[in-house]
Simulated scan of single mutants.
Amino acid sequence: MRAEPAAPRQTAVLYRTNAQSRLVEDLLRRAEIPYHIVGNIRFYERKEIKDALAYLKVIVNPHDDVSLRRIINAPPRGIGPRSIEKAAGAAPPQEEEETLFTHAEGHAGGTSLWSGLNEGCATGRLTGRALEKMQTFLDLIDRMRANAGSEDVAGIVHGAIGRSGYLRKLENENSDESVDRIENLMELVAAAEDYQEAAERPTLADFVNRQSLLSEADEGDGPNDAQVWLMTLHAAKGLEFPTVAIAGVEEGLLPHQRSLDGDAAALEEERRLFYVGITRAMDRLVVTTTEQRRQWGSVKSLPESRFLEEAGLIGPWDADTPDDQIP
């Protein structure tokens, strides 16, 4: 059912982390409701998501030159452009006409980059450290492809993020931005798990094809006249909307786990963020929680946020509590 047209900027969905937008975006897209993201780009347009999908495309079809070039130095491996062209015999980049996987066993239009790199390493076009780095990368892809035969879709996604060294690089950066990127990758694993549960015959090729089509359909941050606006609580400062929904008001998300592991000042900042969120609503406020949430391949139970009781939105009452005793 297509949603009826509505005035722009009627509803805002707020969340603590950028990764939370993925599920909201998927639901709005299915309902054909236009949305706009403030302060970020759509989930499948984010760099780390595109990098992860490129790894998955190469696992399915290593002859996808565009994806192979994207991941060969993501994370950095010290493989320079000159080494790539020398090993490949100066093969030009090959563009795939199809969306994905049309030539899984070969390559239309001549020798693929994958074939060229393997031949270059075997025939001595590269030597020394350049050869060592390139061969290490090619061996990594071969192992990923071999492991994919015994793992489910979510396991392959999780494994690609870890085995590639991509996750370790982000963990070593230890910055707010790197934490944000890690959370986005965690959400991609959750998307793979959702796909597995819904698909009759889940395959990696089908999953990646679906996610790639979403990425191709996304347009930056979305139209400015969209009915629904999505943003983090940080980005919501100074804005007001007739209806505001705050998603994921749970311990570990709001307040964020980092504040729970930190000092009192960090927790107070989370409390202030929640206050910012609930005061963005002009007419109607909706606060949501979930009993269980997927994180890195496991399902976790997160209790409702302490802020809900502090604000009087929930309390120590139950279904038998008289109405006049509930604030």
Rank of each mutant, 00 (worst) to 15 (best):
A6H: 15
T127K: 09
E291Y: 09
G297V: 00
S305Q: 05
K169F: 14
G312N: 12
M1I: 14
A266S: 15
D318A: 08
M134D: 02
L131D: 02
V13L: 15
A88S: 04
D176A: 06
I71A: 00
E216H: 09
E193N: 08
A154M: 06
A198C: 09
M144Y: 00
A108R: 09
L27F: 14
E97T: 06
D261V: 05
G109W: 01
P92C: 04
S212F: 06
L214F: 08
H63M: 03
E173A: 11
K300I: 15
D221K: 12
D194R: 13
G39F: 05
I71M: 03
E173V: 01
T289H: 10
K50W: 03
A311E: 12
Q295G: 05
V157R: 04
A192G: 07
D218L: 05
D206Y: 10
A122H: 00
I41P: 05
S175N: 07
Q94I: 01
G155K: 12
N224I: 04
I72M: 01
N209M: 14
V24P: 07
G252A: 04
A148P: 01
A191V: 00
P223N: 06
A266R: 15
A191W: 05
N18Q: 15
E4P: 14
V208Q: 04
L233C: 05
Q211R: 07
R272G: 15
E97Q: 14
Y35V: 01
I37K: 04
E151N: 10
E250Y: 06
I182Q: 13
Q20W: 10
A264T: 13
M282W: 06
N40Q: 13
F101K: 06
N73D: 01
R82W: 03
E268R: 14
E183S: 09
E132H: 07
N172G: 07
L254Q: 09
S305G: 09
V249E: 07
V38E: 12
A87N: 00
L28V: 00
E171W: 10
A191P: 05
K47D: 13
D65R: 02
T290Q: 15
M231R: 07
R22F: 03
D180C: 13
A236H: 08
N118H: 04
A7M: 13
L260A: 12
T99C: 14
R271W: 13
R294F: 12
D261E: 10
S305M: 11
D139S: 10
A192V: 04
E95W: 10
E105A: 14
A191S: 10
A130R: 02
L214W: 07
I278V: 06
G248H: 08
P8C: 10
L214Q: 11
A104R: 11
S301I: 14
P62W: 00
E269N: 08
G155R: 07
S212P: 04
E250S: 09
P93C: 06
G165H: 12
V228C: 14
